[in-house]
Write a protein that binds this DNA or RNA. Structure first.
Length: 1169
RNA sequence: AGAUCCGUAGCUCAGCCUGGUUAGAGCACUACACUGAUAAUGUAGGGGUCAGCAGUUCAAAUCUGCUCGGGUCUACCA
């Protein structure tokens, strides 16, 4: 019964077509098929994209992903966290690499028997979303609350945030990334936010959440703080010329500063400090020096008043203020206008000696009096010199003027020394009252005033006149500007909420040491450094679309509440309504709060314990908190899913780009460390048992892989502006996800930057997938002919031919190495190993050498062994490669398994990863096969050198053997070598002296330790060895070498002896292996050569005539004058080769095909029997 | 500015951890073969100051330090 119809592909689409397909039948198929001999699917072309489409269809139909998780129900979980992408922008090729990495690890672990659940997620809050919406609506932040309500604005954000979700889902599907897209976590949902609130409340309860001022970039023009993101907009940093001033602070005379005053016999001593922002000088409260920096006390003149002056500055910066000719010049002769100002160094000392010395205030006013300072900071001790590690001698004087309100470093060092803080500039950018002539003036031209006079100049002029300025000049530097107003930014103290991460620093550093970082250097380096220099986490963001800070405060700030759940908030809402009465919270009484975003939470008023109304702190929190809290929030922990959480925390594995080191990797780690006790408490309370310390050590993840960037092929960053972005959809569509994935993984280690080049993908496609495809195709072709379906019992490997044992041994070695590489999160190594095996071993050696076994002879012993062996190789390789290239591997697996049914699973992703069978590994065998390959390669190169083609048989090769082991090894592979290079016999040369020329050299590795410095002498001595010396050495097995009168004993293992030449023979060598070839072509050999050539031509004719592999033929040869003898001689050989039942010779043929055999032309007629 | 990664053939990368004497592979190029796996394959050839300098060592692509170039992150500070 013939059910198959042959359908030869005509021109057709450029994708494979099965050679056979089933006709459509309306009757049930199963009974017909059950007794059909299944055939391996053969391809017409290799077209990965269309194979992938088909596989995707099957996965969808079979729910293959879900099944891969369900099949492992009850198995040990392997926990993976998905770092949520923002669907606010289009996915790029760089997303493909990190997702490939995630996917392959998860697939691998599934194949290792773990259950790997992968919940997808979306990051939905944050500034980019807001900016996108503003651009779309053509509005700015100022419009919010005016032309658009906060509610509408946030609604727009909510709609915009998943704008490209479909595109992302498409990419996820097409690239074969298995992740649960149906049930993802979304950071804007109430449940998610509720978990975030729980986290925040836990931190609050542990006193890790506090409000404080911090110095942040601030735009007086726009009246708002700026994020680092805003500051990093292109064009914000501009070169500007500012009035800079070096000013003189008068040092006070005290016991500790006496050492300076002694040098100047009681005259005044000034400290020089430099600033590019003179407007900060009234707010000055301290000076900072470098503890290890060298300073000098210099006697000189003030360049503006020309009065004598003694000043302190960094030694390294003297040249910026003084011309060297002035050193120790005549002070008495100095007069106003002199170009060279005399100076004299009176003393030199370290900055540390200046610590805590008091000085006179530079610009005292009412608003910056000591009383005013202490009114803000009661115990403040301002106007002192401090030591700060940030002080350098790059610019200025090496002494930094400190106004704690207007610089982050200033604030930090000021806090450390307790000098207080003064903010004498208001939020509009003008001086406050109580500063005399400067009050009310804008520090920069923020209002575009007509004829604005720069107050910085006026301050400088005033100081000049008073002799308190030492140098005033325009200074050009790069300074940040507000991207909206284009006005310079100032650093300004703003209220903000902080997480006290520094309190847990030790724990975070310790725990980091237990994390498996790939590459390790990122953990100790970039991340370790970051932890060491940790500052408290500024959570506050003045925005609209984000997670609101759940803290309500009374107006005076004396009482506050941190809310940790929706239920708690609703209870508080009702309570406040009852206590405060009136309209309070009336919209939220009935159903409670329905949306935890602005503006709704801001409308809620709570009541303090003492009965005062409390309003929410207006800030939103940093979106990084959203993603860092995903282990808890994705499960809505602790409100639900405690069991899931208990089993899925911490993560065994996460992976993202290296740019996340201080982003997601940090926030996950920080929250993990800080919430450790909270997690323990919740789980204990819920009745979970076990060693909590071991199970939940405060770690959020155990292994983290950080992948590098994807650059364009020239090494430039991809950007829309440069137009060098690679469209992942096009790439996958053109070349297939598998080729793309394989390329991304094997081209460079994931953590190295990748120079993305489409040529590389093409290469992978051709080289790896093409080779594998050919190998499979080859197998399928003959297996279908012979009906091989692995129905016979496996032939014990030991009973199979040497070459089968070899390829299986190599295969097991491969399994071992690939497993180790995957276990070590080194997919690049794994992929390259597989590639090498398929190309070098399987295709170019095993299949090439074994071709005949598949198409010659009967279907029995040796042939079945060949099929079984090749089948096992293919079946194993597809499982090894499945994590990296999930599609093609599954296609091949299904095709193989459809015939043999060796696995009950329907997909390669459901089966277990191969386990290496150590018993099959035979290193000696692998070694001698290498020897065979080398020997063959040498013979082929010799043939090439003397121009004798491989089809011409030769008589003999000669191989000098240097040890009995080598001979034994060679003997086992001699037949392979001879067949491969078409030579009749192999002779082993054991004769030692005279014939083979040998060379000796030291085995450096072995001798190095023993000889040390005498190595060179020994090396030279060995180079001078005669053939006789070498022979003697070999015979004795040892040699005494006189070196400087002392004999050095050498053994054979400490030297290498190689055969270099066999005089009179054509030889070639590689390492210790030398091969000589007998290039004499005797008449008999020539005849055989002719016969082989003839066979080759006829085979070509067969193929061109479109005969089937098994067709028998009849051949008539005409005009074969010079060749007939050869052909007659080898007639039976020829007939067997070309499947001819008849081979006849006639004097002449009129028609027929002309062929050429070794320069002789003849005609043949080839016909089917 | 600081931290970190990278720099090996025209291109993409091994090798470096654990130092050993002719530094490898693929692509590309040139030439020649092979051909019942054929949109393959083999052989041979040219092509390298292992970024540079210094140090340690009998011996350095490999270990150490510095410099240069590129990337990334963090910062932008008188």
């Amino acid at each position: 019964m013939l059910l198959f119809v042959s359908r030869f592909a005509k021109k057709g689409p450029a994708y494979y077509e099965p050679r056979y397909s089933y006709p459509s039948l309306s009757v049930p198929l199963a009974p017909f098929f059950s007794n059909m001999t299944a055939r391996y699917k053969e391809f017409k072309y290799l077209n990965l994209p269309s194979i992938e489409k088909e596989i995707l269809r099957k996965w969808e139909e079979e729910q293959a992903f879900q099944k891969s998780v369900e099949l492992r129900q009850g198995a040990q979980p392997f926990v993976f966290y998905e770092g949520p992408p923002s669907a606010n922008g289009m996915p790029g090729i760089h997303h493909v690499i990190s997702r490939t990495l995630k996917d392959l690890v998860c697939r691998y672990k599934t194949m290792q028997g773990f259950q790997v659940q992968r919940k997808g997620g979306w990051d939905t809050h944050g500034l980019p979303v807001e900016l996108g919406v503003e651009k779309e609506l053509g509005i700015t932040k100022e419009d919010i609350g005016k032309t658009i309500s906060v509610a509408d604005y946030n609604q727009k954000c909510r709609e915009a945030v998943l704008r490209y979700k479909d595109k992302w889902d498409d990419l996820t599907t097409q690239m074969g990334y298995w992740v649960d897209l149906k049930n993802p976590y979304i950071t804007f949902t109430n449940e998610y936010i509720e978990s975030l609130w729980w986290c925040l409340q836990q931190l609050y309860k542990r006193n890790l959440l506090y409000k404080s001022v911090s110095i942040q970039p601030y735009s007086p023009g726009a009246g708002t703080g700026l994020s680092s993101h805003e500051l990093n907009q292109p064009g914000t940093y501009k070169m500007v010329k500012d009035t800079s001033a070096t000013v003189v602070f008068g040092l006070k005379k005290t016991e500790h500063s006496a050492f300076l005053f002694e040098k100047v016999s009681g005259e005044a001593v000034g400290i020089l400090a430099w600033t590019t922002t003179p407007w900060t000088l009234p707010s000055n409260l301290g000076l900072a020096v470098g503890g290890n920096v060298d300073y000098v006390l210099v006697k000189t003149f003030n360049p503006y008043t020309h009065q004598p002056q003694n000043v302190v500055m960094a030694k390294a910066l003297l040249h910026k203020y003084f011309k060297s000719e002035g050193e120790n010049a005549d002070f008495a002769a100095y007069k106003e206008g002199d170009k060279v100002v005399p100076y004299q160094i009176l003393s030199e000392f370290k900055g540390a000696e200046l610590e805590n010395l008091p000085y006179e205030q530079l610009l005292p006013y009412e608003a910056n009096s000591l009383e005013a300072v202490r009114a803000i900071t009661p115990d403040a001790k301002p106007f002192r010199i401090m030591v700060g590690d940030f002080v350098t001698t790059e610019d200025g004087t090496g002494i930094v003027h400190i106004a704690p309100a207007f610089g982050a470093d200033d604030f930090k060092v000021g806090k450390k020394y307790g000098i207080g803080i003064l903010t004498l500039v208001d939020r509009e950018g003008k001086f406050v009252d109580g500063l005399g002539e400067f009050s009310g003036r804008f520090i920069k031209d923020y209002k575009n005033e007509q004829g604005y006079v720069d107050v910085n100049v006026d301050i400088s002029v005033k100081l000049k006149k008073e002799g308190r300025a030492f140098k005033v000049e325009k200074y050009e530097h790069s300074y940040p500007h507000c991207w909206r107003t284009d006005k310079p930014v100032v650093y300004y103290p703003l209220d903000a909420w902080f997480i006290r991460t520094t309190a847990l620093k030790e724990r975070m550093v310790e725990l980091n040491k237990t994390i498996n970082w790939k590459p390790a250097a990122t953990g100790t380096g970039r991340f370790g450094q970051w932890l060491e220099n940790m500052v408290d986490w500024n959570l506050s963001r003045s925005r609209y679309w984000g997670t609101p800070l759940p803290i309500w405060r009374t107006e005076d700030g004396s009482e506050e509440k941190c809310i940790g759940s929706i239920a708690e908030l609703n209870a508080e809402i009702r309570k406040a309504s009852e206590v405060l009465g009136g309209e309070t919270n009336k919209h939220y009484l009935h159903d409670g709060i329905l949306d935890l975003h602005k503006p709704y939470v801001d409308e809620v008023v709570l009541v303090s314990d003492s009965g005062k109304p409390m309003h929410r702190e207006p800030d939103l929190i940093d979106v990084w908190f959203d993603s860092g809290a995903m282990p808890y929030a994705q499960a809505h922990f602790p409100f639900e899913n405690k069991e899931f959480f208990a089993n899925n925390y911490p993560a065994d594995f996460i992976a993202e780009g290296v740019d996340q080191t201080r982003g997601w990797f940090y926030t996950l780690h920080a929250l993990g460390s800080m919430l450790k006790e909270s997690v323990h408490e919740e789980l204990k309370a819920a009745g979970f048992k076990g060693d909590f310390e071991a199970k939940y050590p405060g770690l959020a993840y155990k292994t983290v892989v950080s992948n590098g960037l994807v650059l364009d092929k020239n090494g430039n960053k991809m950007s829309k502006r440069l137009g060098n972005v690679v469209d992942p959809f096009k790439t996958i569509g053109d070349f297939g996800a598998d080729a793309t994935r394989w390329y991304l993984i094997t081209n460079a280690s994931p953590w190295d930057n990748l120079k993305f080049d489409l040529e590389g993908i093409k290469e992978v496609q051709r080289k790896f997938f093409g080779t594998l495809y050919n190998t499979y195709q080859f197998f399928g072709l003959y297996a279908n002919v012979d009906g091989f379906s692995y129905s016979e019992a496996p032939i014990p490997v030991k009973e199979r031919p040497e070459i089968d044992q070899w390829i299986l041994s190599s295969l097991q070695t491969l399994v071992k190495k690939v497993t180790a590489a995957f276990d070590d999160y080194e997919p690049t190594v794994a992929g390259r190993l597989i590639e090498d095996f398929v190309d070098e071993h399987l295709s170019n050696w095993y299949v090439r050498l074994c071709r005949r076994r598949f198409w010659k002879g009967e279907y029995e012993g040796d042939k079945i062994a060949a099929y079984q062996t090749l089948y096992e190789c293919l079946e194993t390789v597809v499982r090894l490669m499945a994590p990296i290239s999930p599609f093609f591997s599954d296609e091949l697996f299904r095709n193989l398994n459809a015939v043999t049914g060796r696995f009950s699973e329907e997909s390669v992703h459901h089966v277990l990863f191969p386990k290496a069978d150590e018993a099959l590994i035979d290193t000696l065998l692998e070694e001698r096969m290498q020897l065979a390959q080398d020997a063959s390669s040498l013979v082929l190169s010799l043939r090439k050198k003397v121009n004798i083609k491989v089809r011409q048989p030769l008589q003999k090769i000669l191989i000098p053997v240097l040890s009995s082991g080598m001979e034994a090894q060679l003997r086992k592979v001699a037949d392979l070598i001879l067949a491969e290079v078409n030579v009749k016999e192999l002779e082993y040369l054991t004769e030692t002296e005279g014939f083979i020329k040998k060379k000796i050299k030291p085995n450096f590795q072995a001798l190095g330790k023993k000889l040390g410095a005498r190595m060179k002498v020994v090396s030279t001595a060995l180079a001078e060895f005669s053939q006789h010396d070498i022979t003697l050495f070999e015979k004795e097995g040892r040699y005494s070498l006189p070196i400087d009168g002392i004999y050095v004993e050498l053994t054979l293992s400490e030297v290498e002896i190689i055969s270099e030449d066999i005089p009179g023979w054509t030889v070639a060598s590689k390492g210790a292996l030398t091969v000589a070839l007998d290039i004499n072509v005797t008449p008999v050999l020539e005849q055989e050569g002719n016969a082989r050539e003839f066979v080759n031509r006829i085979q070509k004719v067969r193929k061109e005539s479109g005969f089937e592999l098994t067709d028998r033929i009849a051949v008539t040869v005409g005009g074969s004058n010079g060749l007939e003898a050869s052909l007659q001689q080898f007639k039976s050989y020829i007939c067997a080769e070309i499947l001819a039942d008849k081979l006849e010779f006639v004097p002449q043929i009129i028609d027929g095909i002309e062929i050429e055999v070794n320069e002789e032309k003849l005609k043949v007629i080839v016909s089917k029997m």
